[in-house]
Nucleic acid binder design. Structure first.
Ligand SMILES: NC(=O)c1ccc[n+]([C@@H]2O[C@H](COP(=O)([O-])OP(=O)(O)OC[C@H]3O[C@@H](n4cnc5c(N)ncnc54)[C@H](O)[C@@H]3O)[C@@H](O)[C@H]2O)c1
Ligand SMILES: NC(=O)c1ccc[n+]([C@@H]2O[C@H](COP(=O)([O-])OP(=O)(O)OC[C@H]3O[C@@H](n4cnc5c(N)ncnc54)[C@H](O)[C@@H]3O)[C@@H](O)[C@H]2O)c1
Lengths: 220, 220
DNA sequence: TCAACTCTGTGAACTTCTTCACAATCGGGT
DNA sequence: ACCCGATTGTGAAGAAGTTCACAGAGTTGA
C-alpha cells in the first residue's frame, strides 16, 4: 500500500537511474525476467534494498518469479519521467559544455538540450555541434518560448551564482551545477551539484588507509 | 578524544571538500576568523553539522571565537591529502577526457594528470593539451614508473569494465568512473561514480511534484 | 579578579536509511 | 486440486547520519 504517495528517500531516487541503466542492458541481452537475488549477484546491490526501493512506487514483481525486465524498465523510466522529452538549457559553451552537447547519453534518456548560452561575444553565433550559441542576455526571452524547466550550469565559478539566478528568472526550477560552489536559490528550485574535485578528494582521503600496493589482499 | 582514529561517515568526507572550497574563498576575501553560525548563515550548512564533521578529525576552533580560516583550510587540505601531489592517470581521450585535461581545477587541488591513454590509433601519439596520448597497452608498463594510484575512467560504457581491470592491474586503487555502469572491482579498490544522467534523472523526478509555475511571477 | 557573553565540542535524542526475516503469493509438477 | 520451492513486499530491527542542547573553554571589559 505504498505506491508513490509517501515520501521517497533521496538515496532511493539516486539508485533508480542505476537500476534503469542495468535493466536496459538486460533487455539488450534478451533477458526477460530477473529476481532481486540475481540483481544482487550481478551488480552488488543488496537484494532487499532493490525490492524496498521499488516498493515506494508500487508492486512490480511476481512472487516466485521475479521482475519482468521490459516492464520494470519502462515503469522506472516513467517514474523518473524519462519516458517523455525534458527540455534542458545549457549555459557555458566551454570545455565541459562542449562535451555535454556532444554526449549522446542525454538524448538516449530523452533529455533534449534545446539551447546553449554564453556571454563571450566571440562564441555567440557560432555553432556548438548542431546548436547555435546564444547570447546569455536572451535567456529569459528565449525560454519564454522554449519553456525548459531544467538548466545545466557549466560556467566558471565566479559567474555561477548570477547565472543561476538568471536561469531561475527564466523559469528554470531544476539546475545541474558543475561549478564548485554552493548555489543559493529560492526554495522551489532544486539543485544537484556535480563536483569532480569533491569525488577525487574522497578518493584521495581513502588512499591514506589503503596499503600502498597490491601485494596484500584477503579480508576476514 | 575523537581525532581521526574512529570511522568517519562518508557524508562527512564528501562535505569536507566543500568546506575547503568555501574556506579558500574566505581566505581570498581576507576573512581571518569564522564561526560555525556564520558558516550556516552564508552557506546553508547546518552549524552543528559543520562542527561535528570537523570533530571527527580533532579540535579546530576556539570557543568564544570561532575558526581561523587559514589554519582550518590547511588542516582540511591535509586531511584530504590535497596538500601533496596526487598523480592521476586518465583513460579515454574523448570529449570528456579532453575537458578534464584542460581543467585547471585539478592542478589547483594538487591532482596531477600524469598520463592519458586511449586505444584509438588515430589518437595515440597526438597531444591532448600538453600531454601525449599513450597506447592503452602501455598502461602497466608506464605506471610501473609513474606509480599513480588514482585513475579516471572516461571511456565508453562497453570498454569501462575491462579498462578498470587494466587500471587495477597497473596498481591503481582509486577510480573515478564516468561511464554509466556499476564497476566490479577487487575489495581494496575504491570507486566513485560520476553520473550526469543520474543527477538529471533525480531532477527530472522532482519536476513532477513542482507546480509548472512557469508564469507564476506574473511576468515583467 | 570576576561577571557577562560567545562559541566550540560532543553526548544524547532524533531522524533517516539499510538490512533482516518471514507471511503471502505465484507457477509448476503431479 | 494440492503441495513445493522460489521470490516478492514489507513491518520491524538495526545501523548510520543529523540535529539538539548544554557544559565548559575562551574573550572582553571593568
Ligand atoms: N572542464 C572540466 O573538466 C570541469 C571539471 C569540473 C568542474 N568544471 C566546472 O565547470 C565549469 C565550466 O568548466 P569549463 O572547463 O567548461 O570552463 P571553460 O572556461 O572552458 O568554459 C566556461 C564557459 O562559460 C562562459 N562564461 C563565462 N562567464 C559566463 C557568464 N557570466 N555567462 C555565460 N557564460 C559565461 C565562457 O565564455 C566559457 O565559454 C567551471 O565552473 C568548472 O569549474 C569543469
Ligand atoms: N561527454 C559527456 O558529457 C559525458 C557525460 C556523462 C558521461 N559520459 C561518459 O564518459 C565516457 C566518455 O565520454 P566521452 O563523451 O568522452 O566519449 P568519447 O567517445 O568522446 O571518448 C571516448 C574515448 O575513449 C576511447 N576509447 C574507447 N574504447 C577504449 C578502450 N577500450 N581503451 C581506451 N580508450 C578507449 C575512444 O577512443 C575515445 O577517445 C563515456 O562512458 C560516457 O558515457 C560522458
Amino acid at each position: 500500500m505504498n505506491a508513490s504517495n509517501g515520501k521517497v528517500p533521496m538515496p532511493t531516487l539516486e539508485r533508480l537511474a542505476n537500476y534503469l541503466r542495468y535493466l536496459l542492458d538486460l533487455e539488450q541481452e534478451r533477458v526477460e525476467t530477473i529476481s532481486s537475488a540475481e540483481v544482487e549477484q550481478q551488480t552488488g546491490i543488496n537484494a532487499a534494498q532493490f525490492r524496498k526501493d521499488l516498493s515506494y512506487f508500487g508492486e512490480f514483481g511476481k512472487p516466485g518469479v521475479g521482475y519482468n525486465v521490459a516492464e520494470l524498465q519502462s515503469r522506472i523510466a516513467h517514474i523518473l519521467k524519462l519516458d517523455q522529452e525534458q527540455r534542458v538549457l545549457l549555459v557555458g559553451a566551454g570545455n565541459l559544455g562542449s562535451a555535454l552537447v556532444g554526449y549522446p547519453g542525454l538524448k538516449e534518456h530523452r533529455f533534449n538540450l534545446v539551447a546553449v548560452f554564453d556571454n563571450n561575444y566571440s562564441k555567440i553565433g557560432r555553432k556548438l555541434w548542431d546548436l547555435e550559441i546564444l547570447d546569455l542576455g536572451r535567456l529569459k526571452e528565449v525560454n519564454a518560448v522554449l519553456r525548459a524547466r531544467m538548466g545545466i550550469l557549466a560556467v566558471p565559478r565566479v559567474a555561477a551564482q548570477s547565472v543561476a539566478e538568471g536561469l531561475v528568472d527564466a523559469g528554470v526550477d531544476s539546475i545541474l551545477n558543475f561549478a564548485p560552489l554552493i548555489l543559493r536559490v529560492p526554495p522551489h528550485v532544486v539543485v544537484r551539484n556535480v563536483s569532480f574535485v569533491q569525488e577525487l578528494a574522497v578518493l584521495s582521503y581513502h588512499l591514506s588507509s589503503e596499503p600502498p600496493q597490491h601485494a596484500l589482499d584477503a579480508k576476514g
